[in-house]
Every structure is written in structure tokens, then in C-alpha cells.
């Protein structure tokens, strides 16, 4: 694999597509408050696994598409995702050696920071969050992380994404 250039871009693209689709399905009842932002988590995964390939710039572009997809301000998720990628890329050497469950705690912290950024911008344009529930998706993300990690790792190894 040393001679090959980056391969398996379509795996990355389709993982984001799938994350966007899964993320827009509401969960039943009160559980919906904890619905994780799967796109942000897939982003964390690729920043951990391929930091030389998937970095801040790519994350910013993904964020821009998410902005359009979710009807947010142009640049809102782009900024948050760039910050998320920054945090992950800078710490990926440490986080990579953890087990998925221990990684989940770092993921929680990253997602909380990302969420605060997104809602801070919302607050600036006149939609301040009214209670603490807006942080709940980060908790959902922490619980979902081990599953996502295992699925994406197997996909990456199977399709030899480098």
C-alpha cells in the first residue's frame, strides 16, 4: 500500500451520506433529544484514522454542505466542524491508543465544544437555546461512538481506505 495514493474516497463520502440520512430520522419520544449528530461523529472518526488526508479544510467543506442541508447559516457548521477537526487532529495520537469506550469520553468533550459553538452562533442571530437540553445530543453521541467506531474501522479495513 506504500506506493498507492489515497484510495477509497467513495467510502468516506458514502459514510457521510449515510450519517446524514441516519441523522435525519427522528428517534421515538423523549429519546429524540439525545439523537446524536452522526455527521460530526463520522468526521471525528476520519480525522482520527486518516489525519494526513482528512483535516480541517475538508471538515470545513463538509460543514458547509451540512449548513445547506440543514438550512443553517452558511458557515455555522463549517466553523464548528473545522474546530472539531482541529481538536481531533491535534490529539489523534493520544486518542487512537484508547479503547473505543475510553475514546467515547474524549468524543463527548469534542461534541460538547462543537455543540456550544453551533448554538452560540444561533444565539448571536437571535435563537438562543432556552434550556440545557441542546447539549443532550453530545451524550447520545458518546453512547453511540463505540458502535460507530467499530463499524467504520471494519469498513476502512475491508475497503482498504488509506
Amino acid at each position: 500500500m506504500t506506493t498507492a495514493r489515497s484510495t477509497g474516497g467513495w467510502v468516506i463520502a458514502s459514510s457521510f451520506l449515510l450519517a446524514f440520512v441516519v441523522g435525519s430520522i427522528p428517534l421515538p419520544g423523549e429519546l429524540d433529544r439525545f439523537r446524536p449528530d452522526w455527521v460530526a461523529m463520522v468526521l471525528i472518526y476520519w480525522c482520527l484514522a486518516l489525519p494526513y488526508r482528512f483535516g480541517i479544510g475538508t471538515s470545513w467543506l463538509v460543514g458547509l454542505l451540512v449548513d445547506v442541508g440543514r438550512g443553517a447559516l452558511l458557515g455555522q457548521y463549517a466553523l464548528a466542524f473545522a474546530a472539531l477537526a482541529y481538536l481531533t487532529v491535534q490529539t489523534h495520537r493520544r486518542i487512537r491508543v484508547f479503547s473505543p469506550w475510553r475514546q467515547a469520553f474524549s468524543v463527548l468533550v469534542f461534541l460538547l465544544i462543537e455543540q456550544v459553538l453551533v448554538f452560540w452562533i444561533s444565539g448571536v442571530i437571535g435563537y438562543p437555546p432556552r434550556d440545557g437540553w441542546y447539549l443532550a445530543p453530545a451524550v447520545g453521541g458518546m453512547i453511540g461512538w463505540p458502535l460507530l467506531f467499530i463499524v467504520l474501522r471494519d469498513a476502512r479495513q475491508y475497503f482498504q481506505v488509506t
Binding site: 483535516g55 480541517i56 479544510g57 470545513w60 447559516l73 452558511l74 458557515g75 455555522q76 463549517a78 466553523l79 473545522a82 474546530a83 482541529y86 452562533i121
Partner: peptide
């Protein structure tokens, strides 16, 4: 540095 640039661009865009 990269982060700074992207954040600045986002803020301008927003």
C-alpha cells in the same frame, strides 16, 4: 494557523 483561517472565513461568510 489553518483553523484560524477557516474560522475567519466562516465568520465572514456568516
Amino acid at each position: 494557523l489553518q483553523l484560524g483561517l477557516w474560522v475567519a472565513l466562516s465568520i465572514v461568510m456568516m
